[in-house]
């Protein structure tokens, strides 16, 4: 159950380096508040690791972010970096407005009413820019908007996930006429695919932490004179939860591999990313149901940290498409005649 234990050999970072980076990430997330993570990661030399092997780096980073239940703008930074170096100008701090979970993430700002809404992962600092995506036809542009304008139209997104730093932006106001910079076209399909793979890794990080918590609990808690983890009903539920996490991890490994290996053109990367996020999203629903159950009353109270895993995983499931919606849209495409892409092969 060590993070990334089931990954096959990835090019770039050797296993020894990966395991030492995993330790560094764990320590960094344990010690650093969300707002300072970007600077701390820079100091750790993360940009170099990412340049060496972007897929493995992202998988490790977001897995650790999830396992630590960290809440930060790291994903927003990472997607903006994926738009290209110095986008749109060097040295400018920016955050991305994620599509609202109720809207079609592939076509941001395309909903019927002229309503601007979305999610910010953290409060953007004063004087920085927020990138607001909108689409015209198939083209997605991001509009750099002053963070103050966006902040005035936002509120904390802490309804279910009380420990998150997310904000919901929701307004009927049109974007301000004069923007600090002109809008820029981006490869939104690739950005969403990147984001979905990263969030899938983060969800699985949360799941592994929850499963570890549950396994520890059933080992130490005794009833009827024996550890509750010796009851077959409890053991089998945890085994199923383990299968859910391991299998979603295998799919995600294949999907990252297929996104970075140019020779593997059998399956479109955005299709694969949607499938990986759907599977990770389903895994969290299975793991969390079990995690809460085997803790007994404690599982649904503030006495145990289990609830934080439940709510964080639920929030991440919603970001860039819940498993329910993704499964449905994959099903629609398949029923309409899209190839059942193999995704993974020998």
């Amino acid at each position: 159950m060590t993070p990334g234990s089931s990954t096959t050999s990835a090019p770039g970072l050797d296993p020894e380096l990966r395991s030492s980076l995993q330790t560094s990430l764990r320590e960094l997330f344990a010690a650093t508040p969300g707002g300072e993570l970007t600077a701390a990661l820079d100091q750790l030399g993360w940009p170099e690791v990412e340049a060496e092997d972007p897929a493995t780096a992202a998988r490790m980073l977001f897995h650790a972010h999830g396992a630590a239940l960290a809440s930060s703008a790291v994903l927003s930074d990472s997607i903006i970096r994926s738009f290209g170096p110095d986008f749109p100008v060097a040295g400018q701090r920016m955050s991305l407005l994620f599509p609202h979970p109720s809207d079609d993430g592939a076509r941001p700002g395309s909903q019927a009413a002229p309503r601007l809404r979305g999610i910010l992962l953290d409060t953007p600092p004063h004087g920085t820019l927020v990138l607001v995506p909108t689409c015209r036809g198939d083209r997605v542009m991001v509009h750099p908007v002053d963070s103050a304008w966006v902040l005035e139209r936002s509120r904390p997104a802490s309804g279910f996930d009380a420990s998150s730093t997310w904000l919901v932006v929701d307004t009927n106001d049109p974007l301000p006429e004069s923007q600090p910079r002109p809008p820029v076209a981006v490869d939104w399909v690739a950005a969403v695919a990147w984001g979905r793979r990263a969030i899938a890794a983060e969800i699985l990080g949360v799941c592994e932490a929850a499963l570890r918590l549950a396994a520890d609990h059933v080992t130490s808690r005794h009833q009827y004179g024996r550890a509750i983890g010796s009851f077959q009903a409890v053991r089998h539920r945890l085994s199923e939860a383990h299968v859910a996490v391991e299998s979603a991890t295998s799919l995600l490994d294949a999907v990252w591999g297929n996104a970075t290996d140019e020779s593997w053109f059998d399956s479109p990367p955005e299709w694969a990313a949607a499938a990986a996020k759907a599977r990770a999203g389903r895994a969290q629903s299975e793991v969390m149901r079990t995690g809460v159950q085997v803790l007994g009353a404690m599982g649904l109270t503030l006495e145990s940290p289990m609830h934080r895993h439940v709510t964080r995983a639920a929030a991440l499931d919603q970001l860039l498409g819940s498993h329910v919606r993704l499964e449905e849209s994959l099903g629609d495409s398949l029923l309409a005649g899209t190839t059942a892409y193999p995704i993974a092969s020998i």
Partner: peptide
């Protein structure tokens, strides 16, 4: 049906990913 079809496909490719490893 639409969602189940999608979920079933995802299960099949997940098995492919796991078992090819």
């Amino acid at each position: 049906a639409r969602r189940r079809f999608g979920a079933c496909y995802v299960d099949i490719i997940t098995l492919r990913a796991r078992s090819s490893q």
